[in-house]
Structure formats: C-alpha cells, structure tokens
C-alpha cells in the first residue's frame, strides 16, 4: 500500500500526469490534476504514481510508500 498526493502550490499545470496516467489523474477546469485514488492498492496504480512523480516537471507529485 502506498499513498500519493499533489502539491498544488508547486504544480505548474503542465498536464504530464493526467495525459500520461489517466488511470490515476484527471484534469479539473483550472487545469490542475485531481486524484482518482489516494491510497494505491494495486501494483499498477503504484507504477503510475511513481512514473508520474518522475515525469512531473515541477516535482509536485509525492508518493509515500
């Protein structure tokens, strides 16, 4: 089990998370990402969270394992 959160103060709304990993992230009307799950209970979701954290240009995605 792992947890993921987004720091919206650091987020620059680049969109890399929701375009690359729609399984876990969605874009809201402001262009900010929202999470479809906070608690990641499958290896697939954990993989998406980790990749998104690496790809995020603002390092605004935090995965706590």
């Amino acid at each position: 089990m792992a947890k993921v959160r987004i720091d919206l103060d650091t987020c620059i709304r680049a969109g890399e998370c929701y375009y690359n990993h729609p399984e876990l992230f969605r874009m809201n009307d402001n262009g900010e990402p929202t999470l479809l799950a906070r608690e990641l209970d499958t290896p697939e979701l954990i993989r998406h969270a980790r990749e998104a954290a690496v790809v995020c240009p603002a390092s605004a995605i935090i995965v706590e394992e």
Partner: peptide
C-alpha cells in the same frame, strides 16, 4: 508552454 494549455 504547458501541454495542458493552462497557466497559473
């Protein structure tokens, strides 16, 4: 630019 077309 942002891929999302959305800016702060």
């Amino acid at each position: 630019e942002n891929r999302s077309g959305r800016y702060k």
